[in-house]
Design a protein around this nucleic acid. Structure first.
Lengths: 129, 129
DNA sequence: CTTGATCTTCCAGTTACTGGAAGCTTTATG
DNA sequence: CATAAAGCTTCCAGTAACTGGAAGATCAAG
């Protein structure tokens, strides 16, 4: 499929998809006319990238994550170690997101209007880790 | 306190803290010698920014989030609406992170070594929403 | 067979930092 | 007191990851 359809299915702008091709992150086949030709697997990788980038993982992180599925030469233990490193990172972010959620929820329920200047949420903003 | 100590306490590099001053995100007092002087509240905002940025919220999002605590002129209903918008965004990201976590966990447990080329995780990469 | 939409590459601009130079201030040491 | 190291300042240039726009090729419809 063309880049436009890959964009629609993955949720990423075509511009970004071409950029990911340029940097070798998701490289599609080319047709005789030079057009990029994406298959379903590439679209899935792109959708995965959309998620992971949105969640603050760097392009380099994403490259590693994608390599988990691609690098057939890597030893099984390495794959597992790499995946577990990223899993720990994800768990850390989950905890931080949940903290952020709690802070905001607290704000909504406890601090309205005139009470806000005195509300104690700022003291809680930085978390407790 | 000086920028260095604010950096140590918030976890952000001093460079970034100066940048946040430049763009008016967290503006400290200045001493007579021109040095920036941060108080605890600013440090807490900086730590909050570290979290939120790491989790993929833009500077503009962060500006809004910080304004929830600062803008005393805003009507209570507006504050609540803004906070709830961001809360919804956070919930969406929580779900995405959890999905990512599930994918990785599945990889670790179900696909090792020689089985990987055939493992069905790629088909699951893009999620189901 | 032309018009309009999509595709291509390339180059410039944006966001959010990040590193380094040049210089002032403060602090530690002889 | 001198002076050297450390830390502060501003400013300017560079990086990462896009993002927009120009110039031109290609394709699908009327």
């Amino acid at each position: 499929m063309n880049v436009r359809e890959a964009a629609e299915r993955s949720g990423l702008p075509s511009k970004t998809i071409r950029y990911y091709d340029d940097i070798g992150l998701v490289v599609p086949d080319r047709r005789n006319n030079g057009y990029r030709d994406y298959d379903n697997q590439s679209v899935q990788k792109l959708a995965f990238l959309k998620r992971a980038r949105q969640l603050g993982f760097s392009i380099d992180d994403c490259r590693q994550l994608l390599s988990l599925y691609e690098d057939k030469d890597r030893a099984s233990a390495d794959v597992k170690a790499l995946a577990e490193t990223h899993l720990a990172e994800i768990d850390k972010r989950l905890a931080e997101l949940e903290h952020l959620r709690g802070t905001l929820k607290h704000l909504i329920h406890a601090c309205r209007g005139d009470d806000r200047p005195d509300c104690p949420i700022l003291a809680d903003l930085s978390g407790d880790e």
